[in-house]
Amino acid sequence: MAPIPLSERPLDKYWFIPFFVLNIAVITYMIDIEQVTTMPPIAGKPYPWWPPRAVVDIVRWYGYKYDPLLIARPPFWRASIYYDIFFFGPFYFYAIHAFTKGINAIRIPAIIFGTCLTTVVTLILMEEIYGEYAAHDPFFVVGVNLPWLITPIAIVYRMWMGGERPFDTDKKTC
């Protein structure tokens, strides 16, 4: 059986693959790296060699203006950042390849990824709304983070409903 061409899988082409690319290019290996290389974020402290200075400045601006959790960086937050860097990051590279080529072996890793990311984001959003470091504007911060809650749920659904071979031509897929 051949995989359904990517051109016939708009959900994969226009939602999931761009989500993986965004996470590699911006979130995991820029913003998350900023979170662990500028700990604690002190004004006047030298900038790290990576990420670019503009990214550090934007993250700090956003954190001070909207999201105190991003500045406080309590232990659970840092743990979630390391998890993203060392586990989700490599997954994103493989997922881009697998979703592009229609490789069915991504099914179980994608389900695991989706459930893990949903769990992590739920914990973070609870802190953003009710915690010690609650966001100044929780509706805005939750809105900004909503794609990281909706997308993994959609991926789990896509992989679960696709059966053992979610990309094969004998099935209707997204």
Results as ranks from 00 to 15, higher is better:
1 M>K: 02
111 I>G: 06
94 Y>L: 11
17 I>N: 05
74 P>G: 07
98 A>S: 12
168 D>R: 10
169 T>S: 05
25 A>S: 12
45 K>E: 06
23 N>F: 14
158 R>N: 14
122 T>S: 12
154 A>W: 14
71 I>S: 02
111 I>A: 04
161 M>H: 13
5 P>Q: 06
139 F>P: 02
34 E>H: 14
41 P>I: 03
94 Y>A: 04
28 T>K: 07
89 G>Y: 04
48 P>V: 02
112 I>Y: 03
104 N>F: 04
135 A>I: 05
76 F>M: 03
101 K>F: 10
122 T>L: 13
63 G>W: 08
158 R>H: 15
168 D>G: 08
111 I>S: 07
89 G>Q: 05
105 A>H: 05
153 I>W: 15
153 I>T: 13
147 P>N: 14
130 Y>N: 10
41 P>K: 11
74 P>Q: 06
172 K>Y: 01
16 F>Y: 13
13 K>I: 00
166 P>I: 03
158 R>W: 15
162 G>Y: 15
105 A>P: 01
93 F>N: 01
66 Y>M: 02
146 L>G: 12
116 C>N: 03
122 T>P: 00
137 D>S: 15
1 M>A: 01
173 T>V: 02
37 T>R: 14
152 P>Q: 13
30 M>P: 11
83 Y>W: 04
87 F>M: 06
51 P>A: 12
158 R>D: 14
18 P>Q: 07
53 R>K: 15
151 T>V: 15
80 S>H: 05
63 G>M: 10
88 F>V: 04
119 T>L: 10
62 Y>K: 09
67 D>P: 04
46 P>M: 07
159 M>C: 09
134 A>P: 13
170 D>P: 00
40 P>L: 14
53 R>Q: 12
146 L>R: 10
169 T>E: 08
40 P>G: 14
7 S>M: 06
18 P>F: 09
13 K>W: 01
166 P>Y: 12
